[in-house]
Design a protein around this nucleic acid. Structure first.
Lengths: 212, 212
DNA sequence: CTCCAGTGGATAGTGATGCTATCTGCTATC
DNA sequence: GATAGCAGATAGCATCACTATCCACTGGAG
């Protein structure tokens, strides 16, 4: 498979493929001569993975490179692979969190009996969101946290069940990456649709109709 | 309140405030002379809203302008305000969706008895994600859709309950914006933390420990 | 009253990001 | 042997979200 075929197979232009090769996101093809290379199915797959993580997950090329490096790292401790992947997916948290926000997160985790690493990026993210909600005078909005946590736990159980069905650790870590990113997108899309439906129920069907 | 005070009150630099004024995100201050203006509490609030939507929600300035314009539009049909706000928050969907993905979304919505507008952006997003999951050879990942939908419906009910408690329609639409954006961030942060906790339960505590 | 830091408004510049275009020498294929 | 395509390298470009500079002017300190 040559680069043009790789391009048509994935819908990614040749210059962009070359860019990803340069950036190390896509492994080099097998060189058959100094200036000819062959690409295989794994390149198609990888390219689709790259596009999914960029376009669905909104990952930057820099962050994507880290995530893919973790994924490709078969030398490191396989033990921590899942955790490392998870830690690298989230951008470094919003630094807006104040002490009250952080404490609120701690209390929430304790209420639900969750053991979460002190350094989990999602902690900072959540604390930052809490801080901002309060600053916006919408502290009462935080009443959603407990029901959200219950829903998140249900969802996470499904996710882990599905991950556990994967045979080898390598496939598992790819599932973690894809499942985390695509899962976020699916969950928020469903939430938004449920909003329309539920609010139509509540406020009467006319609220959300007649949009052009 | 002058621009410097507005700056220290919100942590946003003066040049950035000027930029937001130029872009129409922040309303002009009350001019007391040709080159002196006063700003009030509503400017502080608005600026915090802007930063929250940009930094937490990842909205672009262009999209933010549309969302804020909808929020400020008291002349339009108040009936559709909530829906319009919802429709303007999501970026135009991923165009990767194929017919099978779209059909899958239709079936899902039917299974759950959800009435969702044909044009809801989240439909395209979800269909695109489904298409990509299949392309990545992870079609079985879509087993999560039904439990996710159940969780999303629970969450949405909480959201709408809270929104309904708002007195006037104006406050309500702001709550819709903030609640949608911050809610997405909270829910995904909780999902990620629940992953760590649940996976430690499942695979043994050593999986996610000892990260530096 | 004078002085000057600070201001509103306008215009131009900057750094990061994610590609895109062009060039060169080579090669597979017809 | 012509010609289309290729790898690798370098340079360019559009967008975005600010940031910097300049100007005439003003409010408040001294």
């Amino acid at each position: 498979m040559r680069v043009a075929e790789l391009s048509t197979a994935t819908g990614v232009t040749v210059p962009t493929i070359k860019y990803y090769l340069r950036e190390g996101l896509l492994p080099q093809g097998e060189l058959t001569s100094p200036n000819q290379a062959r690409y295989g199915e794994q390149h198609v797959r990888r390219l689709r993975l790259i596009r999914a993580l960029i376009e669905v997950g909104g990952l930057s090329v820099a962050r994507l490179r880290e995530v893919l490096a973790t994924l490709d790292d078969h030398d490191g401790e396989i033990n921590n692979l899942l955790g490392t992947v998870q830690f690298n997916i989230l951008p470094p948290g919003d630094d807006q969190a104040d002490a009250a926000g952080i404490a609120e997160v701690d209390r929430l985790l304790e209420r639900h009996g969750w053991h979460v690493s002190e350094k989990h990026p999602a902690r900072q993210v959540l604390a930052g969101v809490i801080t901002r909600a309060r600053q916006l005078g919408m502290g009462w909005l935080l009443e959603v946290l407990d029901p959200y946590a219950v829903a998140a736990e249900q969802v996470a159980k499904v996710d882990i069940d599905l991950t556990a069905r994967q045979g080898d650790r390598e496939a598992m870590s790819e599932v973690v990456v894809v499942g985390t990113i695509l899962g976020d997108a699916m969950l928020t899309a469903l939430r938004h649709m449920a909003h329309e439906f539920t609010s139509a129920r509540r406020f009467g069907a006319e609220s959300f109709t007649d949009r052009s």
